[in-house]
Amino acid sequence: MPDRTDRMNAHAALADALRALPAPTPERDLWPLLAARARRRTQRRRYALFAVPAALAAALVLALVLPAALRAPRPAIRPSTAAVAGATAAARPGAAAYAAPVAELSALRERSQRLERWVHTLDVGGAPLGGRALAGATELEDMIGLVDVQLAAGGDARTQLPLWRQRVDLLEQLATLRLGGYAVADAGAATPTVWIN
């Protein structure tokens, strides 16, 4: 039976024998390939360092300018649903009571069409969306589809007004997302709520 010293000697001899084996060497010089890979990665990193703040700034400007530009032809700042309901209840029934909602409805429809055309232009000519942005766009399109189903059910101006507002808001968000950056807040102020890669 070998004792502990014998075993230790055997282990040491094995270590010596293994270390004495000739070390395999690379069959070719990999440096040029490695240097090229390192350069590409460095460039990508530098590009990301420049591009991300630039995209951020561009998105911020867009988020500030876009709502104002799109809302310019609107007849008035749209009232909230509650305000519309309150005003309608307080006023006596008649043509005057419905004039404002109908006018806003018409403006919203027009605006919705314009946005839709613009989004379509961005879809056709724009860069493909990344994973998160694509998921966001799909979700927005689904929500627009749901609004359309409700609009197709018909109803008077007061019923349809909040739906059209919602449709316009969703289209604005979709347009902003297509350009990359921020979602546009409902009230017209730009709020950086969603960061897209």
């Binding site: 070390a23 395999p24 060497t25 690379p26 990999l30 440096w31 490695l34 240097a35 390192a38």
Partner: peptide, 14 residues
């Protein structure tokens, strides 16, 4: 990076 590569090319490969 090249200096480090040249120094450790063989040990890493082996």
């Amino acid at each position: 990076f090249e200096r480090v590569y040249r120094l450790f090319e063989r040990p890493v490969y082996a």
